[in-house]
Every structure is written in C-alpha cells, then in structure tokens.
Design a protein around this nucleic acid. Sequence first.
DNA 1: AAAATATATAAGGATATTTGAATGTTGTGT
DNA 2: ACACAACATTCAAATATCCTTATATATTTT
Lengths: 114, 114
Amino acid sequence: MALPQKNKIEMLRVIAHPVRLRILDELAKGVKCVSDFEDFLGISQPNVSQHLALLRNHRIIDYYMDGRLRCYFLVDPMVPDILDVLKKEYAGTLPAPACCPITKKGKYPGDRTN
Amino acid sequence: MALPQKNKIEMLRVIAHPVRLRILDELAKGVKCVSDFEDFLGISQPNVSQHLALLRNHRIIDYYMDGRLRCYFLVDPMVPDILDVLKKEYAGTLPAPACCPITKKGKYPGDRTN
DNA sequence: AAAATATATAAGGATATTTGAATGTTGTGT
DNA sequence: ACACAACATTCAAATATCCTTATATATTTT
C-alpha cells in the first residue's frame, strides 16, 4: 500500500499522545476499566473518559459492559505494531546517503542542477 | 524497553502529520531538496521549509549542501519502521478479549468488583 | 425509590499547531 | 559588486488540542 491513507495517518495522530499511548500500552496487555486508568495514569476521570472517547471514535478501542464498569479493549491491529516500534531499541542512525560522504559534501542526484 | 520514552513519543507526534509523512516517505526513497518537495507536495516553499525545520530540530532528518541546494535525507531509523506499519495491510480487527464473547457481555477480570 | 458508583458529555479557557505573508540569508554566476 | 536562485526565518492569524470544572446518564445497592 502507498501513502497517504488518510485514515491511518489520522489514527497515528490520535495514537501519538503520551497519555493515550500509556492507555493503549495497558490495553495491549488486557482489558481495563476507566477507574483503573484513573488510578494508573493519575489524571482526572473526565480526562480519562475524553481520551477513551477519542480512541473509541476512531475505532481504535471498544468496550463491553460489566455491571457499571466499562471494560475497554483494543480493536485496531495497527496499535501493537506501533507499540513494538516505539519499544524497539535503535543503535545509531540510518546510513548516510551514498552521495553524501562523512564530510556532508556531495552532489545532488536529482534533475535539478545548480 | 518500556513506555513512556518521552523522546520517541515526541518524535511520533512530529511524524504523525500528512505533509511530513509524505516528506518522510519520499526521503525513505532517497535524497531530495526543498524545491523538489515544493513541486511534489504542491505547497508553498516557506511551508515546506517549516516542516523540514521541525523534522530537523527533532533530529529526524538532516541535510548536506550541494551548491545552493539543501539535500535532505533521513537519519532517524524509527521512521522506516513507522512507514512500514502505515503501509501494512491489516485484515479485520484484533481478537476480542477472552472475557468478552461476541455478545459483548462478560465479567471484568480486574480487582475492581461491582 | 433514593443514594451511591462508574462513567460520559458539555462548556470554557489556556496553550499549541498550522499556515500564509513578508522578509532575511547564503551561495552562484556574471 | 550585483543580481538571482534556493532556502530559512519571523510574525501574525486561524484553528485545533488539551485539560479543568460542572453537569448529566446509567447501573447497582440499599
């Protein structure tokens, strides 16, 4: 598949938030309810609900009810992959392009001449 | 490694933008200069430069000079992995949690009782 | 039925992001 | 030295995001 893919980019934007990532990382381990997150994250209940609502509106998570608890769980299969990438340890940077030696001087490979 | 990892989350936030993702997807293929992006993206030169500056400030990309051209290239090794995830085709959703049958009814597995 | 619990929603202001317009900088050719 | 080309930076305005406070809803307990 090629970029853009508006939906996935939009999802990535929603995912890319410190609180929501912690929520998703927890949900990757199992079902959790709102009050659990309130304790775990140390933020207000309305704020937890707002983050959950945002994730839910983007079909990233869903929930089922158990009594008055809302048990949230992951549905978007992209999330675990994103979490894996975030947790991966990278050594150093990408190799510099062929046209750019260590000196950072070189010729531009494109059409555009100087 | 475990979450949070402030730096990587911050990077993900910077990456998660439609224009910047197109820039990064192009850079994953090879070196490109500002005017190339101006043509390719169809946005103003200052705006291209602003996005490039943001990516540069976060050490996601770098450049070398060839005459008056700035030849940009990728340095952050996380970027190709994120692009791979975005391009991956996913079939359906994650399996529902064990405690949540198709009926979306079930018992909450946590401590918190009802 | 009333109270309590678990959660959602709404409204508001503060802060951050995004972009356009104008201007500055630097390297190149003449 | 001058003009131009390629690009960066600054500023301001529009917009979006984020969190707090207040209030509403639904379910269970008493």
